[in-house]
Nucleic acid binder design. Structure first.
Ligand code: MN
Ligand code: MN
Ligand code: ZN
Ligand code: ZN
Lengths: 158, 158
DNA sequence: AAGGAAATTGAAATTCATTTTCAATTAGAC
DNA sequence: GTCTAATTGAAAATGAATTTCAATTTCCTT
């Protein structure tokens, strides 16, 4: 097991690379690069993890009053399609997005009191999952694994 | 790993026991036993696995035209509270219910083509999950693990 | 066996995130 | 610059989940 030591805000190097990747994706697909998409992608990549469209929209609205909710929503879908963002739905049934690099896969520990989200990666579990699938003749494409409970802070003063 | 060899329809013995348990639960909580709750519980326990409120309602409507959707919905919530049903939300974001015995825990393989759901139980994975939680000082209360992909039937003629 | 308080029911209305619609605007190829 | 197709943002639509409310039913008390 390994902590996904991801920095809360990515270095601006990583962001630039990713915005480049987005541009390529758009061009490939015959989509257009727009001021809105650029600003939304920047804000998203800077904000970091597990944000809802609504949260990202509110943040962006502070700086740019002319960007609509719908465009934020649609841009997150695009970021997801391009592989730059992962879509996650936890127990509260809200769709959240987080920046994602090509290789990086991880799962989540979710605190039922404070809502904090911790990421982890465990290769042994991943291997066992693959074996379970095999035994059923099942070809696994993706999985979802979330542990719900109380984080270090919350379990004490619960 | 072990297949959860659960029969599609429970023996009527198990159903009677469970309906007894529901009655006790209702009495404990100061709730009332009604014709509707009784019929909905029976139908649910007979139908078996992973049904939505809508599906269960449609089935019940065939026999009893006077039972409303709302009551089905509310009764499923009650069955969940009483521990007789588990609430599940898979990738399609619909809330499903399945009969559940106290001890029985399992996770799911979900076919992205035909929608079939296979149940499995893997103690090695469960133990590793507990270890992951421990390493983060996290107290795990429950978890969700779903493998998405293609079942034996679908992977071939995909 | 009534009586009556409290819970339940079912239809309809509401909520709320998400998704679609559409007329006006914009990007970018030529 | 011109033109076409894509994009935008406000508003409307969607759809499952939940709440409301008046009528009905349960079941505890007499
Ligand atoms: Mn994450
Ligand atoms: Mn199941
Ligand atoms: Zn916490
Ligand atoms: Zn299948």
């Amino acid at each position: 097991m390994k902590i996904s030591g991801r920095p809360t805000t990515e270095g601006s190097r990583g962001i630039k690379q990713k915005k480049e990747k987005l541009k390529n994706f758009l061009k490939e697909k015959g989509f257009k690069s727009t001021r809105q998409r650029d600003l939304i992608a920047s804000e998203f990549l800077e904000m970091g993890e597990h944000v809802t469209a609504e949260e990202l929209y509110r943040e962006i609205s502070k700086k740019y009053t002319d960007i609509g909710y719908t465009t934020v929503y649609r841009t997150l879908k695009l970021l997801n399609q391009s592989g730059l963002a992962a879509e996650r739905v936890f127990a509260d049934n809200l769709t959240r997005y987080e920046p994602l690099s090509a290789e990086d896969h991880h799962d989540h520990l979710i605190c039922m009191k404070c809502g904090s989200i911790t990421e982890f990666q465990d290769l042994r579990i991943e291997r066992l999952q693959e074996r379970v699938a095999d035994e059923f003749g099942f070809v696994a494409v993706s999985h979802k694994m979330e542990l719900y409970g109380y984080c270090r802070k919350c379990k004490d003063n619960a």
